[in-house]
Design a binder for these strands. Structure first.
Length: 152
DNA sequence: GCCAACGTTGGC
DNA sequence: GCCAACGTTGGC
């Protein structure tokens, strides 16, 4: 099993959206960065666990855990002309972007805030804590995963 | 709202 | 293939 952090703006999709649909598969779409896409396409597998990180909001940090219930497939939003994620260069024969499906596991009683994450030795050199980081899909080692859970 | 950092685009 | 310009991200 692999461990990940997925970044999201809670105004778009938050841990509450998962918690309010506890048995449902939720489509993780709209990733439009090649490095993040490559992780989704090549490395994110069924059963992997994912920390949900809330960005660009009042309380920035880790909000809970979800699991992967469907591995890589063509992101449907790239074909939807009315979607902000529409990509006219993508075709069903040659899709450009990748989605996965996620399902709720846990919501933290309190968000593990970014400043606390930055204080973790295990996360010192992780891209999440680097200034200017924009990657929205980030791998975690088992040790990093555990250290983040221990911050709760 | 500001602005630093970053990824992408496009002219050459 | 280089790199300046531009648009976006994201913490503060």
């Amino acid at each position: 099993m692999n461990y990940w952090i997925f970044k999201t703006e809670p105004a778009e999709c938050s841990i509450d959206d998962f918690a309010n649909a506890p048995e449902q598969a939720i489509v993780w779409e709209g990733v439009r960065n090649y490095q993040a896409r490559n992780f989704l396409r090549d490395a994110v597998k069924i059963g992997d666990q994912v920390l949900i990180y809330h960005s660009s909001c009042r309380v920035i940090g880790l909000a809970g855990i979800v699991e992967v219930v469907r591995a890589a497939y063509a992101d449907p939003s790239q074909f939807q002309t009315d979607s902000p994620y529409y990509d006219k260069t993508a075709t069903t024969e040659q899709p450009r972007w990748t989605a996965v499906d996620l399902r709720y596991l846990t919501r933290f009683s309190q968000v593990v805030r970014l400043d606390k994450i930055k204080s973790s030795v295990m996360m010192k050199n992780h891209s999440l804590t680097q200034r200017g980081n924009r990657l929205s899909v980030m791998p975690l080692s088992k040790e990093q995963w555990q250290s983040l859970l221990d911050l709760q």
